[in-house]
């Protein structure tokens, strides 16, 4: 799994490549924690290049969403979510907890 982060004026873009499982999820959690620990709570997660995500990845997503939405200070939005990843989010009942965007540009513009 590879992670690329880009800091914008009002938000942070996190692009993940590869497989998010119990072996790699801690690395994603660390990256997201670094952003929120810096007081930045508007995060766009670009999942276009994610081939696989288990509940370990879902746990990271929900944990970060909780942190960001607290005190109404921000949110995590999901961009370019592949169908299989979306299906897992749906199976977990997480779809109502996130806003979804077809591409990163729309996501950056709306957050």
């Amino acid at each position: 799994m590879d992670i690329t982060t880009t800091q914008y004026k009002h938000s942070d873009l996190v692009k993940v490549n590869g497989r998010i499982d119990s072996a790699t999820a801690p690395q994603l959690a660390k990256t997201l924690d670094e952003i929120t620990n810096a007081g930045r709570y508007r995060i766009i997660l670009d999942l276009e290049e994610v081939e696989f995500m288990s509940s370990a990845g879902l746990r990271v997503l929900i944990g970060t969403q909780k942190t960001c939405k607290r005190y109404n200070r921000g949110e995590v939005v999901l961009a370019s979510v592949p169908k299989r990843i979306y299906d897992a989010l749906e199976l977990a009942g997480f779809v109502p907890l996130f806003r979804f965007f077809d591409n990163v540009l729309d996501a950056v513009g709306s957050i």
Binding site: S55, K69, A88, L91, A92, G93
Partner: peptide, 24 residues
């Protein structure tokens, strides 16, 4: 079983793996 009606703050991810296995 996971609680699908819980608010974001109360949402737990424990038990999700087993639920997935049964669903898949």
């Amino acid at each position: 079983e996971p609680d699908f009606e819980a608010d974001l703050e109360d949402r737990e991810v424990g038990g999700l793996g087993l639920y997935f296995i049964h669903q898949l």
